[in-house]
């Protein structure tokens, strides 16, 4: 399912002293099956943006289109239920939303609520557990007896059990240890590929955007500040710094190498080993003794 925002404005608490414009003339397009990253500093409008994707928020002005569903300002939306069945949102710290007695019941809660048949639910729970790499035996445990990382996987399995076509991830790796972060991102990427999902990742990690996303949108003060292929966007270092964002570490490092050593190395997502090779061969050009 493709995803389109067209001239969306969103104002919190309009007409009160707290009135606050969180999105301003925001437009973006994510083609079906592609992976988009949304980056911006705290309070730039990212969370407001994703709550529009499944109709938790309705635009104050403008249109949000998700596949065949249209959410328009000022109109009553009849098909929110269908839309929510198709869009899975993994909110920050989703494990705080677990509440059932067993892992199985928690994962089954969504599909049950949407009237999916028993046998089908059972199958979906099994599939979802497998997708998040938790063993079958887990299903009878209380989610509250699990570790933080496992609890998060259960919460994510609950989203996957809805068989969404659009998957929205709001900083899904926050608070995990480095190995856990990597495993989780690789899991999402695998699902994205296998299930042909349209994925929107809200992240602070330039590295993750660079590794997994087809496109990136940079948000600033509720507006779209930059958009494009991640590597191209991240090479605009000055612009990023203007909105308080850092560039991916490897680019920042190569910039320092260039300034200090006068050696320009082009970054094209080469591995660290290749980068080390580039560095040695560039720096080795010279008198060449030893």
């Amino acid at each position: 399912m493709e995803l389109t925002f067209k001239d969306v404005n969103y104002i919190y608490s309009p007409g009160t002293p707290f009135e606050y414009r969180a999105l301003e003339n925001f437009s973006m397009h994510v083609p079906s099956g592609s992976f988009a990253a949304v980056i911006g500093h705290t309070g730039s409008g990212k969370s407001t943006l994703i709550q529009h994707i499944n109709g938790l928020l309705q635009p104050t002005e403008g249109t949000v289109q998700v596949g065949g569903f249209v959410i328009e300002a000022g109109k009553k939306n009849k098909h929110l239920r269908d839309l929510r069945e198709k869009t899975g949102i993994v909110f920050q710290y989703p494990e705080h939303q677990l509440f059932e007695e067993t892992v199985e019941k928690d994962i089954a809660f969504g599909p049950k609520n949407f009237g999916v048949e028993e046998a089908e639910i059972e199958q979906r729970v099994a599939d979802a557990l497998e997708a998040v790499q938790l063993s079958e035996e887990m299903k009878d445990k209380s989610p509250f007896d699990l570790s933080g990382g496992q609890m998060r996987r259960v919460a994510i399995a609950g989203v996957l059990a809805m068989k969404p076509e659009v998957l929205v991830l709001d900083e899904p790796t926050a608070g995990l240890d480095p190995r856990g972060q990597k495993e989780m991102m690789e899991m999402f990427y695998r699902l994205h590929e296998q299930e042909g999902l349209t994925t929107v990742l809200v992240t602070h990690s330039m590295e993750d955007a660079l590794t997994y996303a087809d496109s990136v949108v940079i948000m600033n003060e509720g507006k779209k500040f930059m958009e494009g292929e991640p590597l191209e966007v991240f090479k605009q270092k000055e612009q990023l710094r203007d909105v308080q964002l850092d560039v991916p570490e490897v680019l920042a490092f190569l910039e320092k190498v260039e300034n200090r050593l006068g050696v320009a190395i082009d970054y094209r997502k080469q591995s660290l080993a290749e980068l080390a090779k580039d560095l040695t061969s560039e720096l080795g050009r010279g008198d060449g003794h030893e």
């Binding site: 490092f253 050593l261 090779k277 560095l279 720096l283 003794h289």
Partner: peptide, 29 residues
């Protein structure tokens, strides 16, 4: 770098220290 035979002496912790190492190594590469 070390696995490719470059002799990085210290354990650089940040970009600046790494760039200095490279500067020192430069003529020896």
């Amino acid at each position: 770098l070390r696995s490719q035979g470059v002799h990085v002496k210290e354990e650089p912790l940040n970009h600046e220290e790494m760039v200095e190492e490279l500067w020192n190594l430069r003529s020896k590469m």
